[in-house]
């Protein structure tokens, strides 16, 4: 098993790097987009709520592969975006729908008195949301957001479908050459566990830190 790594370490590390890169971009992008759509889902205006809900329901209920292939096959025929970006954009859109749901749940569980207190204190809806309700909603949502980030890392293997040169893709390349899929996939599995375990660890630490900051 060791010699698979010694013979292919460059390929493996390249894939490892691409997986991390795609996950990080996916995380930032889906956090931004997810926040926007959570706020739309909770907006006072009915038409905004409909837009938010429609987006979230659409991307939650179709496979990530369909979204990714759409970008790779259809969109990239007009815009040259390539495999990495097709996969990563797919990841962002798909994950942001789940993040929106987590955040919506977090915001909804913030005591209604926080909004009332802020409004009575003279703050506008937007001020009350950005300074008081949203920060608390985020904290309450951290455990479920953490799960989404782990899913995001695992889902980044979708890049292997569109020649995204990620870890999964490289695993297939190597096992196609050395005809030892058994050991190759085990090595790659360990690398994936390394990433997902690190994410879990960071999320746990965040949870504990915020638990100490005495909220509610």
């Amino acid at each position: 098993m060791i010699d698979i790594f010694t013979q292919n370490w460059q390929t493996i590390l390249n894939g490892f790097w691409v997986t991390i890169l795609s996950s990080v971009i996916g995380l930032v992008g889906s956090l931004l987009l997810g926040t926007i759509f959570a706020l739309l889902e909770l907006a006072p205006s009915r038409s905004l709520r409909i837009i938010g809900t429609a987006f979230v329901e659409f991307f939650r209920n179709i496979p990530l592969l369909v979204i990714t292939m759409f970008f790779y096959v259809v969109v990239s025929s007009s815009f040259k975006i390539g495999g990495f970006w097709s996969g990563t954009i797919g990841l962002i859109l798909y994950t942001s729908a789940f993040i929106a749901e987590c955040l919506r749940g977090g915001i909804a569980s913030v005591d209604a008195g926080q909004m009332e207190g802020a409004r009575s204190n003279g703050l506008t809806y937007t001020q009350a949301m950005t300074h008081i309700v949203l920060p608390q909603g985020f904290r309450l949502a951290i455990p479920s957001l953490g799960n989404q980030f782990i899913n995001l890392v695992k889902n980044s293997s979708i890049l292997s479908f569109v020649a995204g040169f990620d870890l999964m893709y490289q695993a297939n390349v190597i096992s196609g050459a050395n005809l030892d899929p058994f050991n190759t996939y085990i090595i790659v599995g360990i690398l994936y566990l390394l990433i997902t375990a690190s994410v879990s660890w960071v999320v746990k630490r965040l949870e504990n830190r915020i638990g100490k900051e005495v909220i509610r």
């Binding site: 005591d111 926080q114 207190g117 802020a118 009575s120 003279g122 703050l123 008081i132 909220i215």
Partner: peptide, 20 residues
């Protein structure tokens, strides 16, 4: 919003900002 800057309110359950 304008009105509420002139009319303050104190609640039964305080409603202080938990994150501040």
């Amino acid at each position: 919003n304008q009105l509420r800057t002139d009319v303050g309110m104190v609640f039964q359950h305080f409603n202080l900002y938990n994150n501040k």
